[in-house]
C-alpha cells in the first residue's frame, strides 16, 4: 500500500483505528484519494465499509489515527466539522430525505441555513439540479409520494446543492427495486465523468468497471486488497477476494 505524500491528495487517511466498545471495527486503515478520483469500496457485509466512509465526514468518531480532508484535520472542533461537512456530501442507502419538507425544500435547506444563500438563488439552483437528475416536475411533491429510485435521485441532488468537492455513497442502490437501480447509477456515472471526487460503497461491479479508478476490497475491518478495475477482477491475489468475487459475480 502506498502512502506517498502527494500534494493533490484531497483525502488522506493514516493509521485509522476505530472501536465500537470492545469491537475493533477498523484496523490500521491507510488510504489516499486524489482529487477527481473515483474509488469503489466493496467487501462482505459487516466488513467496516460504512464505518470507514462515515469517518470521513465525522458521522463516526474514531479513536486513533488521522484523517485529512482538503487540508483540514478532522478533530472534535464543531466549526471544523461543519466546514468539512459542507465540502463532503453523503448519500445514504435509505435516502434519508426529510419527509416533512417538499422535494425542493429538502434541497434548499442546507444552502439557506448553512451557506446563507437567499431563498431565490437556492431555489433556482435546486430546480436546475432536479432537472439534471430528471425529476424537475416533482419539485413540489413530498418524499413519500416518489418511488425509491426517484427519492435516491433527490438525495443525490440534495447532496450536490452545496457544491461539494467530495461525494460519499453508502450502498446507494441496495435498497432499491431492481428496475430502479440503473436510473440512479446513470446519474452517478454522469457525476463521476464530471470530475467530482467520489468514494462509493457498492456491489454494482458494472458501475465499478465503468468509472472506478481504484477498487478497494475490505474484510474484517481491514483493507485487504486494492487495485485498478482491470487487475482487480482479472488477477485477485488474496483468497478472500477470490471467494468474494466468485460469490457476487455468479449471483
Amino acid at each position: 500500500m502506498t502512502t506517498e505524500n502527494n500534494a493533490s491528495n484531497i483525502i488522506e487517511i493514516s493509521e485509522l483505528n476505530k472501536w465500537y466498545g470492545d469491537f475493533h471495527a477498523l484496523k490500521n486503515i491507510n488510504m489516499n484519494v486524489k482529487e477527481g478520483e473515483i474509488i469503489v469500496v466493496c467487501g462482505p457485509s459487516g466488513s467496516g465499509k460504512s464505518t470507514l466512509i462515515r469517518c470521513v465526514n465525522f458521522l463516526e468518531k474514531f479513536q486513533e489515527g488521522g484523517i485529512l480532508v482538503d487540508g483540514t484535520e478532522l478533530t472534535d472542533d464543531a466549526q471544523k466539522i461543519r466546514k468539512i461537512r459542507s465540502e463532503v456530501a453523503m448519500v445514504f442507502q435509505h435516502f434519508n430525505l426529510f419527509p416533512h419538507l417538499s422535494i425542493v425544500d429538502n434541497l434548499t435547506l442546507a444552502p439557506i441555513w448553512v451557506h446563507n444563500e437567499t431563498k431565490e438563488e437556492s431555489r433556482e439552483k435546486a430546480l436546475k439540479l432536479l432537472d439534471r437528475v430528471g425529476i424537475k416536475d416533482q419539485a413540489e411533491k413530498y418524499p413519500n409520494q416518489l418511488s425509491g429510485g426517484q427519492q435516491q435521485r433527490v438525495a443525490i441532488a440534495r447532496s450536490l446543492c452545496t457544491t461539494p468537492k467530495i461525494m460519499l455513497f453508502d450502498e446507494p442502490t441496495s435498497a432499491l427495486d431492481p428496475e430502479m437501480i440503473s436510473e440512479v447509477l446513470d446519474v452517478m456515472v454522469e457525476l463521476a465523468r464530471e470530475g467530482i471526487t467520489m468514494i462509493c460503497v457498492t456491489h454494482e461491479m458494472g458501475f465499478a468497471k465503468k468509472v472506478a479508478n481504484r477498487i478497494i476490497f475490505m474484510d474484517e475491518g481491514q483493507i485487504v486488497e486494492e487495485n485498478d478495475p482491470e487487475q482487480f477482477f482479472k488477477n485477485p491475489e488474496s483468497d478472500r477476494l477470490k471467494l468474494f468475487l466468485k460469490q457476487i459475480l455468479t449471483h
Binding site: 458521522l59 461537512r85 442546507a110 448553512v114 452545496t162
Partner: peptide, 24 residues
C-alpha cells in the same frame, strides 16, 4: 437516518433540532 442526514449537510445542533427533528 434523519439525524445523520441533517448532520451530513452541515446543520448545527440547533438547526438540526428546530428544522428537522422537532417538526416531525
Amino acid at each position: 437516518g434523519q439525524y445523520e442526514a441533517a448532520d451530513s449537510i452541515g446543520l448545527s445542533y440547533f438547526q438540526k433540532n428546530v428544522l428537522i427533528i422537532l417538526p416531525q
